[in-house]
């Protein structure tokens, strides 16, 4: 299986605070990686680094065997990385349809506006409205649709179920399953560890900026994840 993302020995600081420490991980094409860890473990920092919002102190990242220019959001977008950010962060001055259109890339692919509306029919009905007129779950659909519009190779989903009801979360995971079936690789950060590990192919648990546990979601046990989550293993 081809590796579509390789992070090698990446370290990153916020002033004096070491947020990522010599971090390495890989993701295979078409697979899903569950990234778990307590608050402050460095999951969101890694997501922001991957999509170019932050730059690393040291280390390298390859996307499909090509080096990624760090700290350049356009380079990450061109390489095929797209972020569904924590808290959705939609553009309030834009209608729902405009939010989806702005993510559209020149790369081409299956995810055009019609395909996104097929995936989320409710968004087509409400396409002229501002995002504030939608429920939290519907806003998450816009955030996913906006990222999908760039036809990403790897979809980065940060805190995907944050603030959503269990029913809506289930619906969101159903959508992610469909996206995965189209061949898109996924990295999902979620506090619902059981759900995300049950969904993923690979698991990586982070603690204080390092990956303390990595492996197949089929073989890693919840006990191992729990120990790693609280820093009981190194």
């Amino acid at each position: 299986m081809t590796t579509c993302l390789e992070v090698r020995n990446v370290s990153m600081r916020y002033d004096q605070l070491l947020a990522l420490s010599d971090l390495s991980l890989t993701l295979n094409e078409g697979q899903t990686l569950a990234l778990v860890g307590a608050n402050g473990a460095g999951k969101s920092t890694l997501m922001r680094l991957l999509c170019g919002l932050l730059t690393a102190e040291k280390g390298e990242i390859d996307v499909c065997q090509k080096p990624l220019a760090l700290g350049r959001p356009r380079a990450s977008a061109s390489a095929g990385l797209a972020l569904v950010p924590e808290g959705r962060l939609l553009f309030e001055s834009l209608s729902i349809e405009e939010n989806l259109q702005i993510g559209r890339s020149q790369r081409g692919g299956v995810w055009d506006l019609a395909a996104i509306y097929t995936l989320f029919p409710i968004l087509k009905e409400k396409r002229k409205l501002p995002p504030s007129a939608l429920s939290g779950g519907q806003q998450q659909m816009v955030a996913i649709g906006r990222a999908l519009a760039s036809n990403p190779r790897i979809l980065l989903c940060d805190e995907i179920s944050l603030g959503l009801s269990p029913l809506v979360t289930q619906e969101v995971y159903g959508v992610l399953k469909h996206i995965r079936e189209q061949g898109t690789s996924l990295i999902i950060v979620d506090q619902d560890v059981s759900r995300v590990t049950a969904f993923a192919d690979q698991v990586a648990c982070m603690f204080k900026g390092r990956v303390t546990l990595a492996g197949s979601a089929r073989t890693v046990t919840l006990k191992q994840i729990k120990d790693s989550y609280f820093g009981l293993t190194t």
Binding site: G52, L53, P73, S78, L83, F91, E98, I102
Partner: peptide, 23 residues
């Protein structure tokens, strides 16, 4: 226009607009 869309997105959330490929 597309330019106007990018302008409004940039005004709302410059970092996220950059992620969407806005120059």
């Amino acid at each position: 226009t597309r330019f106007g869309r990018e302008v409004r997105a940039l005004s709302d959330r410059p970092d996220i607009a950059a992620l969407m490929g806005v120059r």
